[in-house]
Every structure is written in C-alpha cells, then in structure tokens.
Amino acid sequence: MSDDVLRIRTPIGIKYQYSAGPRVSSHLHGLMDGRFVGKRCPTCHLVYMPPRNGTCAKCGCLLGEDVEVGQRGTITTFCIVNVPFLGQTIKIPYVAATILLDGADMGMSHLIQEVEAADVRMGMRVEPVWRPRDEWQPSMENVLYFRPTGEPDAAFESYAGQL
C-alpha cells in the first residue's frame, strides 16, 4: 500500500489590509521625522511609546495627547537569539532587548548591535541608529538597531518595576 495518498498540499492565500488606527498615526508620522512620539493615558497619565493599539490596557481607555520621548533609553531585560528564524533577516546571534526610552513608562522591543552579545547587560544605556533618511517608512524599522551610549548603567531599582 505504498502508493496510499497520506498528505496533500493545499496552499492558502488571503490578502489582508491592516489599519494602524488614528492614534498610532501621529507616532508613525514621528518616525518619518526621526522622532519617537508616544501618547499619554488620560486616566493614569503614563506615557506609551510606541502607543501600541491606541489604548492604555490597564485603564481600558483610548490614549490622549502626543508626547515626544527621548532618543536614549535603558535595557530592562533582553534575550540573545541563536535560532535561525523564518522571516528573520538579522544575523544570529543577536540581542533582542526591551528598552525603556527616557520619558516613556513602558518598554519596547528592539535590536542591540555594535556590542558583543555576551557584553549586553540589564540596565545598559542605549541610543538608536537610524537608517539613511531616504529609506524611512512609517515603521519602527526606521531604527536599524540600538547601540550602547557608554554612559554608566542605570540602577536596577530604576527599572525593576518594569520587569
């Protein structure tokens, strides 16, 4: 019975149109301008950068005013990725970190480069390296990666509440 058909391949193709939503638009415009524009929650007053899906999930409300935050930030925690991953174009090993930008109240994910993976630390201070301006799109991918600033590490207590 070696000619039994046990499996068939049936590709599925569907096109989707995603919407960033009005609240994320000012953030995306900011990225087209080399700035990190987040939003403040009108209820708890914390600053979200990026403004996620336009909501403060803790309060269950729509985010309010735009707030530009600093370019520099602190690594709160990180992962050294050694797995070749489908769709992943970054050479391994690389560091994926949660970065708390100065003036923001929640970390965001990005790459850390220009430092050996083994030398990356929790609390390390980092800054963005932007793509050439003519390559900018409305996307966080405008920042190629973050790199160490050389400043002293932030104290653990300063970001412990983020873990």
């Binding site: 990725v81 797995v83 965001m108």
Partner: peptide, 25 residues
C-alpha cells in the same frame, strides 16, 4: 505585522527576557 519591529523569534524570544528577569530577581 506592519508598523513594528520584527525582533522577536517565536515564543522563546518572547519569554526569555522574562526568565532573565526572574533569574536576576
């Protein structure tokens, strides 16, 4: 998904920083 930075590598990439936080704490 558009708009964001695709840095994570599956569930391991998501949970490993949290595990690092636990080890440190």
């Amino acid at each position: 998904m558009p708009f964001g930075m695709p840095v994570h590598a599956g569930a391991g990439g998501y949970f490993s920083p949290i595990i690092r936080s636990y080890i440190k704490r």
